[in-house]
Nucleic acid binder design. Sequence first.
DNA 1: ATGAAAGCGCTAACAA
DNA 2: TTGTTAGCGCTTTCAT
Lengths: 329, 329
Amino acid sequence: MATLKDVARLAGVSVKTVSNVVNGYSFVKPDNRRRVEEALEATGYRPNLGARNLRRGRTGFIALVLPELSIPYFAELAGLVITAAQEHEWNVLIEQTFGTLAGERAALASLGPHLVDAAILSPEALLVDDFQLSVPAVLLGEHAVDVPISRVGIDNVAAARTAVRHLISLGRTRIAAIGAHPHRGTAALRLEGYRTALAEASLPFSGDLVVPALNYHRADGAAAMRSLLDMPTPPDAVFCFNDLLAIGAMRTAAERSLRVPGDLAVVGFDNNEESVYSSPSLTSVAPDKGAIARAAVDLLHRRVESPDDALEDVETPFSLLVRESTVAG
Amino acid sequence: MATLKDVARLAGVSVKTVSNVVNGYSFVKPDNRRRVEEALEATGYRPNLGARNLRRGRTGFIALVLPELSIPYFAELAGLVITAAQEHEWNVLIEQTFGTLAGERAALASLGPHLVDAAILSPEALLVDDFQLSVPAVLLGEHAVDVPISRVGIDNVAAARTAVRHLISLGRTRIAAIGAHPHRGTAALRLEGYRTALAEASLPFSGDLVVPALNYHRADGAAAMRSLLDMPTPPDAVFCFNDLLAIGAMRTAAERSLRVPGDLAVVGFDNNEESVYSSPSLTSVAPDKGAIARAAVDLLHRRVESPDDALEDVETPFSLLVRESTVAG
DNA sequence: ATGAAAGCGCTAACAA
DNA sequence: TTGTTAGCGCTTTCAT
């Protein structure tokens, strides 16, 4: 692998001149420039990012800390973050936490400034005292605790409210919610939106219809739905806090020979690709994942450039995509 | 951020001694060791990986080049590769190619030895002359062209044959295949397995029943299935070259009010999580993704240690998971 | 406009 | 056993 020095020797100039050409700096005598460019070409020179970053005091990487790539929402998001990061010449380092406190602590601990320039965090279990980050960071989703860190996300209360109002507009009156969680910020807000929508329609709130989920996988949704269907008076609609829960819930409904949406209307959250092709297809709250990814990366870039700027809280848009699980096709 | 020198000064020893302690080298006088460890603790020292790797001539990263993270198979695989890489103290850099030749070329071009120590490639469009890699690499899947590079994958012919034999054992006689592709190695092999199974059962092979798919997304499967159902004599079973195609095909079947598996049996390939919860759940060929990820990373590690070893071709196991799309639950 | 040289933080060859 | 030091490849003063 050719180094700057090799190129300099070949071109008969100093490394400084070559460096100037490579980085597009200042004025270089046309003649020298030409010679350098030829040498660059001849050697196939490619800068050693490690060395450059060591010198510049940056790493060229940002971390993306998320629960699991096998969760479609995070996989899609990760792809978008990678694309967005390329525009700032950042490479993305993905760390999986598997949604555990230990996993999140381990990920954060490995995030020294020598490894990454900044970090995008999607924590599920993190406590406030863990946020001793040494690099600029942005939170995706919600603050589970009150911590001084920028955030990018949607208005979860409004989104949940929109979803539940849709169910109410369909004439449903026993509307369940799946996904309550002891310490996830998003869960609390979506529950709040659910309650708000019910109250606005003067529908009673019943704790029985709110089913917790310790994880947000398909299996959890299936289990939650079973418990709902075992009730003396099962719900006629269910709002799930993510699409995976909804897919699981629909699976249970199918196993019990319930018609969706006839007997049970189902709304999810996240708008996974998968939900477009399920049978029935799933009505879902669709955050603009591209906007989230871009906003997070841009925010981080701003912060790395000027670390003393005020914290930001970026709200990205969402929409409700109505499909067969609430309105028969 | 504390450096080795800071620690050395605090402990009253030389950097060498600190380095020895940090790296677990040779013998260090117990007294010094204690002092160093205290200083390490006090300063919260964390090695600068960039500097270490610059010195060691390695980067601490491997690249994972794949089409798209939004494809569940690759998302799951990526998660497993990240986990496997951790055991060798490697971080994983994910590059998306979006399945295009340009994307794959761009990804490969960015893979200098200064960026990554090795690369895992999952190409779809790559031509032979593009394989001018400067780092050890391993191919996931199949050689589309005859190129000297190690490979990890399953026996695609045998896997496809197993899938189709299963359909035949169910008494199906008009078995279609979705996913033929002009230059994907896996497609060719799965098609071969399909033909072999038909031949073994003395079933006629009909080109009409083989539908190409330019991409392997759900939409492509849905479209392919529509074309099959528009035939005068539609198939009674279909073998899809991946689960997404199968999910799309089942969606089309549902839209046409066909019963699966009654009117149409469906088999997929990859065993996505999604396929366990679809209605009906999907019978699928299940590669051992964990084994693939581990084998690829281990192979790369071996190769980085001893670059002159012979190329390897690692075959990982697979199984057929029978679910409702072929055998009613 | 360009060259010489220091130094980013680390490891390892060489000395002691 | 430990210290001194060169140098990985690069950027960037400071001279010139």
